[in-house]
Design a protein around this nucleic acid. Structure first.
Lengths: 179, 179
DNA sequence: TTTGGCATGTAGCAAGTGCTACAGAAAGCC
DNA sequence: GGCTTTCTGTAGCACTTGCTACATGCCAAA
């Protein structure tokens, strides 16, 4: 693994823990036992570092979501996806994705591009799981967009509501989609 | 209207236009034909300014959503809410709300508190409209949380997908909830 | 006319930002 | 040995950040 990749992994760990909004090179470098100087050297600019971090994070969550076995029904798939989604590992990645998407709301780079890249493969993975769980092939992408949007929206509510309340809402969605 | 309120209104206009995440006092003050010095004088701190801006923005979108006449059905209510939600005026406020929620993802103040305050009355308003449109009273709050989360999640996708695609997804949700 | 409070302008501070200039170390290749 | 390439440390630059010290103008009450 190249030095750059190693730094990307550790920077991703730090960003997942402390957030993407407000991320700055010096504290990040200090936590990684290196210097801002080195980060710029290996990544060229902060923007490229951020892009690498978002890509790394996306790879991690994709690996987990792609490994899910098919669910017994579409409704069950929604529940299973939520459980995976809120598992520590994926949930952090998704939280950072939401931060990136918020940073991209006004078109700022590198966030828009990174979010677009992540979103494409992510939605495809969700759609794949839904299709494997019984959803019609042509409905899967839109269904995936709906489910993903709802999950991300609920993520924004996490600091407000308890996880139990959010799960209840997901169950409502699952049963609505099943009928 | 006090000077402070007037400044809050104009600061809100600016924040809705340029975003909350990178908001800083000097450019904001310059756009308002005043100085950072004055903003701090009237609001005490940047945090209180931000709280005032979020509160003002919330008041504005609440005024619009509260004025909606009941819809013919729950499904139609979801569609109507989306159309109101994406109307220029409300959509900007909601975009800023999403920014604030993202800023609050790691517990940072004043964002968490402001988001909590806004969310409470906002969900209540959505629930009210859904109930007025035929939803069962006891289901309305959870339904409102579901609809609101989905809308906010779709807001994050706005820079990626076209509005037509997002509306399609909302229609999927509406028909799923109707069945 | 003096006093006192509200509002404002000028200047600046300490800290933090991304990034760079420059020098050196280490390691492989001739 | 030299020589180039890759990497790293020190120091610093130009700029922005939220916020403050201080002096000043305005305007109503005493």
């Amino acid at each position: 693994m190249s030095r750059r990749d190693e730094l990307a992994e550790r920077a991703t760990d730090h960003a997942l823990e402390h957030g993407l909004i407000g991320l700055s090179l010096r504290p990040l470098a200090a936590a990684m036992d290196t210097s801002d100087r080195m980060l710029i050297y290996h990544f060229g600019s902060k923007d490229e570092l951020v892009a690498a971090v978002l890509s790394t994070s996306n790879d991690r969550s994709m690996a987990i979501i792609s490994a899910m076995p098919p669910s017994a029904s579409v409704a069950q798939a929604v529940i299973d996806l939520w459980d995976t989604f809120t598992a520590q590992q994926v949930q952090r990645c998704q939280r950072m994705y939401v931060e990136a998407a918020a940073l991209g709301l006004f078109g700022r780079e590198p966030y828009v591009s990174s979010v677009r890249d992540s979103n494409l493969v992510w939605i495809a993975a969700i759609a794949g799981h839904l299709a494997a769980s019984g959803a019609a092939e042509q409905d899967a992408p839109r269904l995936a967009t709906l489910v993903d949007a709802t999950f991300n929206g609920l993520m924004l509510d996490r600091p407000l509501d308890g996880d139990a309340a959010l799960r209840q809402v997901v169950e409502d969605l699952a049963s609505a989609l099943a009928r």
